[in-house]
Amino acid sequence: MIDRLFGDLTRAGLAALAAFVLLLLVLPGFATGYILSVTTIILYLAFVGQAWNLMLGFAGLLSIGHALFMGIGAYASAYLFARHGLPPIVGLIVGGGLAVAVGAAISALAFRFAIGGVYFALLTIAFAEFTRIMVDHARFLGGTEGLFLPVSAESRQGFDLFHLRGRPEMFYYVIMLLCLGAHALCRWLLTSRAGYYWRAVRDNPQAAEALGVNIFRYRMYAVMVSSGMAATAGVFYAFFYNNLFPEQIFSVERSIEMTLAPIVGGVGTLFGPIFGAFVLTPLGEVLTWAIEWLQHEEIIGKQVKVDGVKLLFWGIAVAAIVLLQPRGLWPWACKRLGLIRAPEDREEGR
């Protein structure tokens, strides 16, 4: 089992992975509140990045409306909790189920009518935007005024996993486990029948079909797994931030945010989305400090908005990756550090 899941890693790679997991586990022991919250956000982005990557990187389906699935999870769980007092596990089941159903419906329509490539991507945006406007007008979901989860000073001190009310450390551990779980799931899927079929369909659907692959079904599977994962991220988001606004949750920017880490890390790689998140978010933080420092020293004026500069930086970073390293930073780093084994070395154990 271990060899099947981690067969692509060298000894150094395995050691690095183990060290990484260990560091994540003990981090709350010495990290400041700030570091912990930044790492929580990184892990959240790494988690949704893996969900998105599963569709594009494994199965070759580009979604730029992934905020839709994340939003369905977020809104369903928040609604059930805030209005009916139901715990997030119920929200996860309902929201996850709903997101998977919506994903299945969209892809069933799209693939039945042979809509592929950029047209499929546009269809995902169209559904996300349509949903945003609908939620804007849905009174029971708070509409444009937003949906808020009840939170008390006392509950911020606790560790109530069942209701996802508690200290920052609790949220950190929840998203860490989700992120590592997603990584394990992706590893397992990629080495199973679905993984082989997905990559075949991604590389050449016609040839895959001639080899007995039901491309419709396997594309559906990819969308469903991915949308379920995104909805799970949405549940976490809702309980972590405690407020939801349609224009923030279902926006195109949110969908694009979900794609940044995997693109930078490497689309189609297993660890790329995680790596990308750990590269991008700290860079963004450094950028924020730099601007604030420059403003403090009065080198640049206050009118320069941190958000604008950050966005500008993301834009330039993604453009640079596409132009210079289209396969992403992770494969490049792996080669440099010798973390991944060449296919011919995977044959005889370690």
Binding site: V118, A121, I256, Q303, W314, G315, I316, A319, V322, P326
Partner: peptide, 25 residues
């Protein structure tokens, strides 16, 4: 196709943020 799409999305983000920096929200 998707890489071209992403490149243009990146250019779009850079342009919008440029406007944001110069003209405010």
């Amino acid at each position: 196709e998707h890489m071209q799409f992403l490149l243009l999305a990146a250019i779009a983000i850079a342009m919008v943020s440029g406007c944001l920096i110069v003209f405010g929200p």
